[in-house]
């Protein structure tokens, strides 16, 4: 053993300096080799503006619901206990229970309103999901990763809007026309509206918006001051469902 204390310290210091330098360069490489994609999402906040007055003109119309059912392979279980719904109708008094003033809302009181997932800015469903199967994208869409859903239904308990449905049975046999472009779900999985993110990715608008002949639904980017949704919200007064809960819904109803 010819190494003395002085030499040993020198070698040790050199080695640790090398290790640190190596780690720094590896870190730099790792961050450099993975450029942050999805820049288009960052400047986007998707929202829906619904004009109930236009929608209610044709009272029996279910074009938006039918369009959604078709493109998303939504099953029809017949049994109301098992219903799976992404977009649906509810009487005003049930959709907006906090609007108790019965005179000003007289014209709407028993009229059906179009409801869907509100894609909240502060989504309680995302907070409770134990597997991060549901998460909020940068563009505001509250997304579902059905691969990860374990069917615990915490999100259903957390959602104050009843926007989520559970597949109590295998949905496949209950789908009238299978569309191979979109997956079905499986038994034991929660599903809901995703603002047609698969269509947005292709540059198309949501299926319900396109199906609405009365143009009662407008979809757009709230981060763009010139967008139609921003213009509408600027020009007219709007209400959101249960705003007092602090969930910050992104579906607006013009009044």
């Amino acid at each position: 053993m010819s190494i003395d204390r002085r030499k040993f310290l020198g070698v040790a210091a050199g080695a640790s300096a090398l290790v640190l330098a190596g780690k720094a360069s590896v870190d730099a490489l790792a961050s450099g080799s993975q450029p942050k994609q999805g820049g288009s999402l960052a400047n986007t906040r998707w929202a829906m503006v619904i004009d109930p007055a236009k929608c209610l003109k044709d009272k029996g119309c279910t074009a938006c619901i039918a369009a959604c059912d078709k493109v998303h392979n939504i099953p029809d279980f017949k049994n109301p206990k098992h219903v799976v719904k992404w977009i649906w109708k509810e009487p005003f008094k049930d959709a907006f229970p906090e609007q108790e003033d019965e005179y000003t809302i007289e014209q709407y009181k028993d009229k059906p309103f179009i409801l869907m997932c509100n894609h909240c800015n502060n989504p309680p469903c995302v907070r409770v999901c134990p597997t991060q199967a549901t998460f909020r994208r940068e563009d505001g869409i509250v997304m579902m990763d059905w691969h990860r859903c374990i069917g615990c239904r915490y999100c259903m308990a957390a959602c104050p809007y009843g926007s989520r449905s559970f597949n109590w049975l295998d949905p496949r046999p209950h789908i009238a026309h299978l569309d191979p472009d979109f997956p079905t779900r499986t038994k034991g999985v929660v599903e809901k509206c995703t603002f047609c993110e698969e269509r947005l990715a292709r540059g198309e608008g949501p299926a319900c918006v396109e199906a609405c002949e009365a143009k009662a639904m407008v979809f757009g980017n709230l981060d763009d001051p010139d967008s139609e949704v921003r213009q509408l919200l600027k020009a007219r007064f709007s209400i959101r469902r249960n705003p007092e809960l602090g969930t910050q819904p992104e579906v607006y109803y013009l009044v």
Binding site: W146, L178, D179, P180, F182, P183, T184, R185, T186
Partner: peptide, 17 residues
């Protein structure tokens, strides 16, 4: 693999139609 429990084989969709 459970891919096909949700993802649809287009041939199957064709047959069901």
């Amino acid at each position: 693999p459970y891919c096909w429990e949700c993802h649809i084989d287009p041939a199957l969709a064709q047959r069901s139609r």
